Simulated assay, not measured.
Amino acid sequence: MERLGEGAVNTFMAFLKTPEDFKRYFDAGGIGSVEARIERLFGTRLKALQRKVTILLECPADDGFTSDLLVDSILVDCRALFLEHPNQKKNATLQTVYRTRRMDEAAASVDSLFDTVVSDDQSVRQVLKAWVDKRIVHIDWLWEDEEEKMLANVKALLFGDGTVGLLEVLDRIVEEYEYVKLTFGENYRAQIDRAFELFTGDPDDSPSDMSR
């Protein structure tokens, strides 16, 4: 099979040219399997992020070393899960998850949330990306005043000194995502199955009836 999206209208669909291609595709799960795998990968990392936030909030005030480790890890997770380059259309970000579900407006809403200005005319996206890229996964050369400004922006984001705090952003994102899963199913494949059940089942059945 060709790589995903190559020669296909659907970004998440392989270009199937031979009977062997079709067999491999359906052996892997068929329609919706790629989208479901992307969402599983995202969900696993999101649960780990939520656990880290919980541990951080419970961390003793005098344990600065553990707190710093958790903060760095949380920021890296946020960078990975929410701030991918638009050209990386199949990486397991929340925006990609929404696009696999054909929910482009929800994906755009997440982008807008991370474009919120938090401090020093910097958006949540800019603050997160700058700190993770220049001070965690890389150690870029910065003048002292540049580093101090970047650190101040991160603190404003983390501790809510600006217009919005990171935990507030995460709470909103997770709440909306959990609602999507509850309403439409665990992933795009489940969403398809639920739609077929709706269209082929008893028209008097409610969604709650069909979920049993």
Rank of each mutant, 00 (worst) to 15 (best):
Phe12Arg: 00
Met13Tyr: 13
Met13Lys: 09
Phe15Gly: 15
Leu16His: 01
Thr18Leu: 07
Thr18Lys: 08
Asp21Ala: 02
Arg24Thr: 08
Tyr25Lys: 02
Asp27Pro: 06
Asp27Leu: 13
Ala28Asp: 15
Gly30Val: 09
Ser33Phe: 03
Ser33His: 08
Val34Ser: 01
Val34Ile: 12
Glu35Trp: 07
Arg37Asn: 12
Glu39Pro: 06
Glu39Ala: 05
Gly43Asp: 15
Arg45Gly: 00
Leu46Pro: 05
Ala48Val: 11
Ala48Thr: 13
Leu49Cys: 08
Lys52Ala: 09
Leu56Met: 11
Glu58Asn: 12
Cys59Ala: 13
Pro60Glu: 08
Pro60Gln: 05
Asp62Trp: 06
Asp62Cys: 03
Asp63Tyr: 05
Thr66His: 08
Asp68Ala: 14
Leu69Pro: 00
Val71Lys: 09
Ser73Tyr: 01
Ile74His: 02
Ile74Cys: 02
Leu75Ala: 04
Cys78Ser: 10
Arg79Tyr: 11
Arg79Val: 00
Leu83Thr: 09
Leu83Val: 11
Glu84Leu: 10
Pro86His: 02
Gln88Tyr: 12
Asn91Arg: 14
Ala92Met: 01
Gln95Val: 01
Thr96Ile: 01
Thr96Phe: 02
Arg99Ile: 03
Thr100Leu: 02
Arg102Thr: 11
Arg102Trp: 10
Met103Ala: 11
Met103Leu: 15
Asp104Gly: 10
Asp111Arg: 11
Ser112Glu: 15
Val117Thr: 12
Ser119Thr: 05
Arg125His: 15
Leu128Gly: 04
Leu128Phe: 09
